[in-house]
């Protein structure tokens, strides 16, 4: 977000990426965004047994301005969706979204009028975590996967290139209804 984005592509930028990724992944501050059942498991993740402090993220920030990870923990209702988007917009870059539980990821068992069928309709999601609710251990696994993503985040020119490549991949991907094969 600062001068590191302006670095010329090369060895310096790559080392900078490694360093920044290392620093960023060790200090992810989540926003307190508990909605439903998953929020209780998210609090258990912050509790003594699972101890989120091990990952440098024991500070659940109440203000979205100070947070860089939004753990959407629970079902997102149509009434909550605008609020959720507003909170996401208030968060400063770089920011990540973890969709915790099936309700947040796809609507889950609540396929009805009240629930947004997947929070990715509202905000971009980096990690989807299945489960109803996922155990705190599963949340830890998702966090570690997110750390992996953060570590390998590109910067500057390399990010532009990576984004372009991702877009190409997305364009080539077949739509869900064209996929064939077993339901697994």
């Amino acid at each position: 977000m600062g001068v590191e984005e302006k670095l010329p592509s090369g060895v310096l930028l790559t080392s900078m990426e490694n360093l920044l990724g290392y620093l960023r992944k060790g200090s992810v501050w989540p926003a307190t965004f508990g909605l439903a059942c998953c929020a209780i498991e998210m609090m258990a993740f912050g509790g003594p047994r699972h101890d989120s402090a091990r990952f440098g993220m024991e500070v659940f920030r109440a203000s979205p301005r100070q947070a860089d990870l939004m753990i959407v923990a629970g079902r997102v209702s149509q009434k909550m969706a605008p609020v959720l988007r507003q909170i996401y917009d208030q968060m400063a870059n770089p920011k990540w979204v973890l969709s915790m539980g099936v309700c947040a990821s796809s609507g889950g068992m609540f396929n009805n009028y009240a629930i947004v069928q997947g929070v990715d309709h509202v905000v971009p999601v980096d990690v989807y975590l299945p489960g109803c609710p996922p155990r705190p251990e599963m949340l830890i696994d998702a966090i570690l996967k997110l750390h992996d993503q953060i570590q390998h985040t590109k910067l500057g020119a390399q990010k532009v290139a990576a984004d372009a490549e991702l877009e190409q991949v997305a364009l080539r991907a077949e739509a869900t209804h064209e996929m064939k094969g077993l339901l697994r």
């Binding site: 396929n111 009805n112 869900t176 209804h177 996929m179 094969g181 077993l182 339901l183």
Partner: peptide, 11 residues
Amino acid sequence: PLGGIPVEYKG
């Protein structure tokens, strides 16, 4: 209506 959407997966 219940207001659910059809769920698509792999065809």
